[in-house]
Design a binder for these strands. Structure first.
Length: 270
DNA sequence: CGCCAGGGGAGCT
DNA sequence: AGCTCCCCTGGC
C-alpha cells in the first residue's frame, strides 16, 4: 500500500475523461484499473491517494503510467488569461493526466471508438479481453483478463469480433492485428518515430483516419502535440475559437488542452 | 480533390 | 420510434 499526496491528479476525472476503457469506479472513492497484466485499485480522498500495490510496483510502473513525473500545473499556467473558456475548462478538469497506455491496446480501443459511445466501447474491450486475453486473479481473489496480443487476434476471420459486439469495426481490428503480427507494421519502430511520422504510419492501418490516429498518438505514444478533433471538439472550436484554436501558443502540449476541452464538454451536458 | 452513404447496435430521450 | 454515438472507407 502506497500513500501519496499528489497535485493535479484526480482519479475520478481521469476515469471519466474517456481515454482509458479499463478503468472503473468500484465503490464510493475506489477505482480499479487493468494495464499490462497488472491490476490496481486506487482510493482518493481530496489530495490524498492510496495505491493498493507495493512501493516497488508504484515506482516501477504506476507512477509512470499515471504520468506523475510531469508538471501539469505548468501547462495550466500557460493558458491565456484572457481565454475564459479554456481557463474554466482547465480548472474543471485540472486533475486530468494523459496516461501512458499500451500502444497496441490504444490502436484497438480507438478503432472501436469510432461512431460509438463510451459505455459500449468499454463493453467491447471487456468482451475481447474475456474471450482472448489471459485470465488472472487480483489481490481480492477476483478474476480479471489481460488484453490479448496481436498474434492472438490475427488468426480470426475478419468478422470474428462481431461476437464481441464490434459490429462493422471487427474487420478493422482483425486486419490491423494481422498487419502487426505479420510484421508489415512495426510497433517498436512507431514508438521511436516523431509525432508526424508515427501518425502517417498509423494512417496506413485499415480503419484508422485522422481522428483515431491522433487519439493513438496522444494516449498510446504520449505525443502531447496530438490534437484529436471529433464532433464535440469541432463544435467547441466553432463556438469559442472562430479564428481557429491557438495551437501555436500551446505548441508541444496542445493535446493536454484538448483533453480539458473534451472533458468539459463531455461533463457539462449532465 | 469533395461529397456522402453506409456500416451494427446499444443506450438514451 | 427516433436519434446519437470521441468516424472511416469506398464509390461517385
Amino acid at each position: 500500500m502506497v500513500k501519496k499526496t499528489i497535485d493535479n491528479f484526480n482519479i475520478s476525472q481521469i476515469c471519466d475523461s474517456g481515454q482509458c476503457f479499463r478503468m472503473r469506479r468500484r465503490e464510493n472513492e475506489i477505482y480499479s484499473v487493468i494495464a499490462s497484466e497488472k491490476y490496481l485499485e486506487i482510493e482518493q480522498h481530496g489530495g490524498e491517494c492510496l495505491f493498493y500495490c507495493s512501493e516497488e510496483e508504484y515506482e516501477d510502473f504506476w507512477k509512470t503510467y499515471f504520468d506523475l513525473d510531469e508538471d501539469y500545473e505548468f501547462y495550466i499556467s500557460k493558458i491565456n488569461p484572457n481565454d475564459t473558456y479554456l481557463k474554466e475548462a482547465a480548472r474543471f478538469g485540472r486533475g486530468i493526466r494523459i496516461l501512458r497506455q499500451d500502444l497496441w491496446e490504444m490502436i484497438v480501443s480507438f478503432l472501436i471508438s469510432q461512431q460509438n459511445n463510451i459505455v459500449r466501447i468499454r463493453r467491447c474491450i471487456h468482451n475481447i479481453c474475456e474471450c482472448y486475453g489471459e485470465s488472472k486473479v487480483n489481490f481480492q481473489g477476483e478474476t480479471y483478463y489481460t488484453f490479448p496480443k496481436p498474434e492472438k487476434l490475427a488468426f480470426l476471420p475478419e468478422d470474428g469480433l462481431k461476437e464481441c459486439n464490434l459490429g462493422y469495426r471487427s474487420k478493422y481490428v482483425v486486419r490491423t492485428a494481422r498487419s502487426i503480427a505479420g510484421g508489415e507494421t512495426d510497433l517498436e519502430m512507431i514508438r521511436r518515430m516523431s509525432y508526424k511520422k508515427a501518425k502517417a504510419e498509423l494512417l496506413r492501418l485499415f480503419g484508422v483516419g485522422e481522428k483515431v490516429a491522433d487519439c493513438i498518438c496522444l494516449f498510446g505514444l504520449h505525443h502531447l502535440r496530438a490534437f484529436p478533433i471529433d464532433t464535440h471538439i469541432m463544435q467547441a472550436l466553432d463556438a469559442h475559437y472562430k479564428r481557429g484554436f491557438p495551437k501555436r501558443r500551446y505548441q508541444g502540449y496542445e493535446g493536454v488542452m484538448q483533453q480539458y476541452i473534451f472533458y468539459w464538454e463531455l461533463k457539462r451536458g449532465n
